[in-house]
């Protein structure tokens, strides 16, 4: 076996960088969509809105019991066919790999984040709601200023763990022929026959990003420890 030669990494840096940017932007978008949508899903269940709450429970149960890679396939192949039928002419309307990735990840993560938030909502002390009532705060103000901030603080370590998993899961987009960090590295590795170096380098990249995020969790925890201890 040849000695390790990392010069390949330096040469192909721009390509790896663009892969990393794709992974990060997919993570960020799925986080944003997932958190906003997930919070809405959790609140709808929390308020037990008739019918809607049941539908959401079903949605969350289904999403959480099938692999993400399968959802990606479904979305990529089935949604164009459904759209084609809906449009009337019967021909599939392709939505493209990138859109598929962003939408699927957003919807998928929404199910996971909604469960985290739903549990968090249940953990808020009954007395907090009573204090809001006694002060005549509206339901909107109660949730916006009192309940959700506490839920997000309590749940932030779990939310960030889920986001780290999300970041690692973005590598699944290779099934859609999209080039994320892992995808870029794989292609370069095959091309140059430098598999070991490439996979070592991106392993380090994933490690650094994930553990840096974990550090953020620790810092957040410390910062809110005062407010959370009661």
């Amino acid at each position: 076996m040849n000695a390790l030669d990392f010069s390949i990494v330096a040469q192909s840096w721009p390509y790896l960088w663009s892969g990393l940017l794709f992974s990060l932007s997919l993570t960020a978008a799925a986080f944003a969509i997932g958190m906003i949508l997930g919070t809405c899903l959790a609140l709808a269940q929390h308020f037990e809105i008739p019918v809607v709450a049941q539908i959401i429970r079903g949605y969350v149960a289904i999403i959480r019991s099938i692999p993400l890679i399968l959802v990606l396939f479904w979305f990529f192949f089935l949604v164009p066919i459904v759209l084609g039928h809906l449009s009337g002419n019967g021909r599939p309307i392709p939505i493209g790999a990138t859109y598929t990735a962003f939408i699927t990840f957003g919807l998928f993560e929404a199910a996971y984040y909604s469960e985290i938030i739903r549990v968090g909502l249940r953990a808020v002390n009954k007395g907090q709601f009573e204090a809001c009532q006694a002060l005549a705060l509206s339901t909107y103000d109660t949730y916006r200023h009192i309940v959700l901030p506490q839920v997000l603080r309590v749940a932030s370590p779990i939310i960030l763990s889920q986001t780290i998993i999300l970041f690692q899961d973005t590598s699944l987009v290779y099934v859609l022929s999209l080039t994320d960090l892992l995808g870029a590295a794989s292609k370069l590795a095959q091309l140059n026959g430098r598999l070991v170096e490439m996979y070592l380098v991106i392993a380090v990249a994933y490690l650094v990003i994930s553990s840096a995020t974990s550090q953020c969790v620790a810092i957040l925890r410390k910062r809110y420890a005062v407010a959370a201890a009661r």
């Binding site: 007395g127 907090q128 009573e130 204090a131 009192i146 603080r153």
Partner: peptide
């Protein structure tokens, strides 16, 4: 018009 004080304070911790 009615203020209330609870046994367990119920201050907003955040």
């Amino acid at each position: 018009e009615v203020g209330m004080v609870f046994q367990s304070f119920n201050l907003f911790p955040h």
